[in-house]
Design a protein around this nucleic acid. Structure first.
Lengths: 194, 194, 194, 194
DNA sequence: GATGAATGAGAGTTCATTCAT
DNA sequence: TATGAATGAACTCTCATTCAT
């Protein structure tokens, strides 16, 4: 039984990994099902036995990517000393992230540009991803800024999130790291002076 | 003669307007040439006598949109009293912008998600659009913060640009205006205390 | 397994046969993919799963036609008594060939008129077809004229090939069999008198 | 009046020359009307005021080319001493012809591959061109072989014509001059030994 | 007589998906 | 479960031709 599931899971995961790489590199609409199955080394019908549609693959990709990210950034921040440094770490995380060879911006923002407005499933998934990320940032603020009241914590958390998103998107668009540095600068000012 | 040119210009402009609306609403790849010509009320070959390819239409769309935007935001800022208020206006501009019924985020960021990495033409156009916008922001900073030195002006300009981009992208993604307010808050802090 | 292969082969061969008939009758450029699939009774995507492009179909057509031809003419010549008669048979073969209802000249010569000069693939295929034919003629000369030296055999072979090609092309162009008779006459003279 | 006609003729002739070059180089179907007008430097409607259709241009092209050819080959043969040498000259003419940089085979044979079987106009034109050529060859035989009877003259003329056509087509297909040499060899044998 | 703009019909190709085995 | 074959709908783009001026 568990062997069965494992085998199934393995194939399924191979597909997700392949699709993820391709979707992230080339974009969702510019990646064909044929490319995915060729690179995965499986048959087309096999893919469709694991995923009802290409859209399902997109959802799995968004899930995979965000789980990876959350795990990485949580570890990164936890490795820093408590206090402001952990908050700044959220942005500093973006530097090695940006420097990864396959860096291609934020999959959520890129994907939202590729599906129709009516596509509630995908758009909900993306919002939920971002919500989870904001939750992580808020928790980080709460544990590192216990002196602030709830409303101030929420506000700071929002600002940090915004700086993160701006830095991520702009470093991609500009093909340069300066937006990350700019974000970090803004945050440090903020933390220092108020 | 001028009649001829007008006729030509008219058709051409009709196409750009139609394509712009569709590209912005549905995205580039999800908008077919057939939709554009049907909505424009012209024949397919007419479109292709005005634009060599769909990609050319994308470039025209990016140009059209950015020219519009720059004109609007320049007017909006100029309508505010000189000083910090003109800088804040850059972000405040996003509120009515966001409230427009057809608001769908930043066409540049959305378009960059839709073309292959190798597409130098489009990516260059997008960067050049953003460069022009950054130039506008820098000029605004220079004229409203003459007391700062060049390097400080550049830094502030970068920060303002980043807040603008973050607010724009996030208000779109979240479907809410709070990222704009958050950006404005951050900027006001910065201007007050630093 | 073999059933699978057979099914695949069947469809593939149906396509080639249909395309061959149409290409030979109407010409390559004047035959549309739509005609081929309609006549084949298959879907467009099915065709493109068997052949990467229309050009690939052209190559398959050239191959199919030449294999058929070589088989036929070899059988025809083998049915004649050894000696000069086998050489003359090469030209005599053209008489029933010309009389076939669907006779439309030489597919190689017709095809070479339809593809751009730069199309190396097709032009190479055509040359290779003709090379195979010349090889057949040369072998026939060698086995039926052992008394000649190599150079003489080559020369006679070239002459026979040339008469074949001229008769084929001209019987088509003129819509008459006399060029074949003329070729045969010339060859007989040649064989008789040296 | 004559000025008018001359102007008209000039434009018309420019078009024919341009179309001829393109048709001969690229083939009829692969040459677009747009290319012709661009290269001619005229407007599309101007072309259509001189030629009812692209087919009419094809007819003009076939006419132009054959008139040129007949003039050239007649001059070439006339420059040789009377007798067998004038007959051989018909084939020798092909050597410099083949060596011309823009040599691309026989326009008649190439064109016949490009129009539908039903196209009587073009096919008739091509046959009539070839008929005129055969007439020229026959006249040459008659004046250089007065000792032969009518039937023999006709036969020799047909053979010469066939060798010419074979050499022309094959030198093109093979991209080599040997078919011309082979044809000449066959003819010389024939003339020598009867 | 000459023109630029516009066109309907069709080209070849690719897409995500499903079916039969 | 896994597969190779097949599909309808859609894609971008080009053709020879005609119309209004």
């Amino acid at each position: 039984m568990s062997v069965f599931n494992d085998v199934k899971s393995k194939t399924r995961h191979t597909i997700i990994r392949t699709a993820s790489d391709l979707f992230y590199e080339k974009g969702y609409n510019l990646t064909g099902i044929n490319e995915i199955i060729e690179e995965s080394g499986i048959a087309k019908a096999t893919l469709y036995s694991h995923f009802r549609s290409k859209e399902d693959l997109l959802l799995a990709y968004l899930d995979e990517k965000d789980q990876e990210l959350l795990k990485s950034i949580k570890a990164f921040c936890a490795s820093k000393p408590a206090g402001d440094e952990q908050l700044i770490a959220v942005l500093e995380f973006l530097i090695p992230f940006f420097e990864q060879e396959d860096f291609n911006g934020c999959w959520c923002i890129r994907s939202i540009a590729e599906v129709p407005r009516e596509n509630v499933k995908v758009r909900t998934k993306i919002k939920s991803n971002k919500q989870a990320f904001r939750q992580f940032v808020l928790a980080l603020v709460q544990s590192n800024k216990p002196e602030l009241d709830k409303s101030q914590q929420q506000q700071l958390s929002n600002q940090l999130y915004l700086l993160y998103e701006g830095a991520l998107t702009e470093s991609h668009l500009q093909g340069a790291a300066w937006p990350i540095e700019t974000s970090i600068g803004l945050l440090k000012d903020k933390l220092k002076k108020g």
